[in-house]
Simulated scan of single mutants.
Amino acid sequence: MVADVQLEDPRWEACDLEAIAEAAAAAVCIWAGLDPDLVEVAVLGCDDARIAELNGDFRDKPQPTNVLSWPEEELGADQPGGKPYSPSPDHDGQYALGDIAIAWETCEREALEAGKPIKDHATHLVVHAMLHLLGYDHVQDADGDLMEAIEVEILWKLGIANPYAD
């Protein structure tokens, strides 16, 4: 199992966040050349109040956001637009990549505003967060362009249309 999912908000059960997280995490692992059976990621399905608390505690931004991630290792690239470092396995050859939290109300609202199924948007957010755990970010334009292209590629393989297309 790739994703260890905890549901604080029961609304995530209706869209099966466990299956979404597992599929999205496995797809990112495969794209990154990691055996999904050797990778573990913790995923918290919560509400806006909880994610606002986490966002305040860890980013000093006490407001809701769609998804947060906490990488186990700092893997960021040395140069903008560069490939991040590969994660290190533990002594058993396992990869603990980190933690993800995703907020129901924000995810649902964004999906409705974009006219897309919440499952597709939640999948996109988990893919996005998984890439953060692997050292990708979008602070610099070159990094954002790279990360977006990777997201589109992985989502396409999962049967989800380009979320950035007009």
Rank of each mutant, 00 (worst) to 15 (best):
Q63S: 09
E105S: 04
K116Q: 15
E8C: 08
E18G: 09
E22C: 10
Y95Q: 02
G33H: 08
P71I: 13
I160S: 10
H121N: 13
A111E: 04
Y164W: 07
A42I: 10
C46W: 00
E73Y: 05
R59N: 15
A23C: 11
M147N: 00
L125Q: 14
A32P: 02
A19T: 15
W156G: 10
E151G: 04
R109F: 08
A21F: 05
D37Y: 10
E8Y: 06
L68T: 14
E74L: 14
M130T: 13
P80G: 02
V28C: 13
A27H: 04
W31I: 04
T106P: 07
V152H: 00
G76A: 11
S86K: 08
M1E: 01
R50I: 11
P87L: 13
N55A: 05
D4N: 09
T65K: 05
E110K: 03
A42T: 07
G82T: 04
R109C: 15
W12M: 10
L68R: 07
I154L: 02
E110R: 03
A32T: 08
I102R: 05
I118L: 15
D48C: 08
H121F: 15
C107D: 06
L38F: 08
P163N: 00
E151W: 03
D35C: 11
V126R: 01
K83I: 14
E53M: 11
I100L: 08
V2P: 04
E22N: 13
D4A: 13
E113G: 03
W104D: 03
L146I: 02
E108V: 05
K83A: 15
P36A: 14
